[in-house]
Design a protein around this nucleic acid. Sequence first.
DNA 1: TATTCACAAGTTGTCAGACAAATTCTCGCG
DNA 2: CGCGAGAATTTGTCTGACAACTTGTGAATA
Lengths: 240, 240
Amino acid sequence: MSRFPFQRLQSELAELIARTPPGGRLPSEPELAKLLGVSRATLREAMRTFETQGLIRRRQGSGTYVVGRVSVFESGLEVLESLETLARRMGLSLRVSDLVVERVFANQELADIFASPLAMPLTRVRRVMWTEERPVAYLVDMLPEEVLKAEQLPDDFGGSVLDFLLDRGDPLTVARAAISAIGAPPDVAKALQIQRGDVLLHFTSRLYDTSGRVVDYALSYFIPGYFHFHVVRRVVANSR
Amino acid sequence: MSRFPFQRLQSELAELIARTPPGGRLPSEPELAKLLGVSRATLREAMRTFETQGLIRRRQGSGTYVVGRVSVFESGLEVLESLETLARRMGLSLRVSDLVVERVFANQELADIFASPLAMPLTRVRRVMWTEERPVAYLVDMLPEEVLKAEQLPDDFGGSVLDFLLDRGDPLTVARAAISAIGAPPDVAKALQIQRGDVLLHFTSRLYDTSGRVVDYALSYFIPGYFHFHVVRRVVANSR
DNA sequence: TATTCACAAGTTGTCAGACAAATTCTCGCG
DNA sequence: CGCGAGAATTTGTCTGACAACTTGTGAATA
């Protein structure tokens, strides 16, 4: 539960929308506002965010309707959430194995990414995520030691660096993820118990805080078919 | 000039944001509202849409700031644009080959996607996109014949069904793309001149119009490394 | 001089209430 | 049964207000 009305609103609305069948109508704005304990103006701002994402559609005089979506089991990429959170929403449970937290030093590439000097100390967190006795993802996070020291990770670390930073209250804003497909490199193949060169979905993410600094550089490797990532793409109007 | 205040507002705001250098501050809300001739409530709703898209950041007590737009506009997946348009912006030129436009009939899967009866006639457009003597993408679009008949495609068809529909003025709204990685199926491998099983990035897209109907179901296969797809992910608080 | 603290001014966040505009429903009337 | 006028409902927009937060200023202090 968040401290700020707007964020709480967003998650409650997201839940409500997820519960409503495609094409279904949401309660009217005055009703919803009362139900959620906010003013209509604030409610409308929250609704706009979902409209921007294409999840709902509003028709003056008629109501607000949930747009047909493929499945609740899919994750929209425009919202950054941890695999754990995603899995919980899907009714799955994720397990962590082969957790390795180590201290490394920035090479040229990493120094560029973090806009830091060469050899800056970093904390690298590697682990394999399992669901139902099967490895499905291999995750590597790298963070400046000023942001995260190895000792700070709790013993019951669930596998999500993002959740840890959020719970700690870090002022995170957005992440930028590059999406590609690759054949499994040897170390990843070994961790995921697949063959070298097998197909993997690959994200390379930079997580930013409010000051625009990169606080986490993450490499994610997913075995296709276990997680369904999708994105809503806006059609831009003709410029005139 | 649009008929509706909100749409006019959006384009004027978009312009203002585009004019403001990254990190720059926008005028205060009361000022902007007066300047644009709307109430502060309406203005805030419009601002929310840009905040959702990661273009601006608001800080209570301080102001509203423009986020570095390079990261967002470069080739973000949140905006749907044709490969042609994208390639032109990246300074590449795309060529089309092996264009096949044919009439097919919906099987059960396609009928579900289009919410249509079985065996509904569809127009299927397949082609290979080349850049610099090398095939880089294989695209398949399927549209109800009511939306697009084979004869309607011009002789100089550039390879983008999306551009064609937009130029024609179709009321398109959003597309949903599912992202995954696959090994090349035989037919795709042949078209792209690669080996069966080679790694491909794969999008499955549904394009919607204003009535919420699926007007285009598209399969896209990309050879990794030629197009850089990325997405901006908003951080939201945990819901627990 | 340098530092700290209180405070005022400015900005975003939220609220309540009102009316306009569009849609949908109801019901009387032919 | 069909149709149209009007009522009811719902989203769109506006106004004014206050709360919460940030920032700069300047006086008081070490």
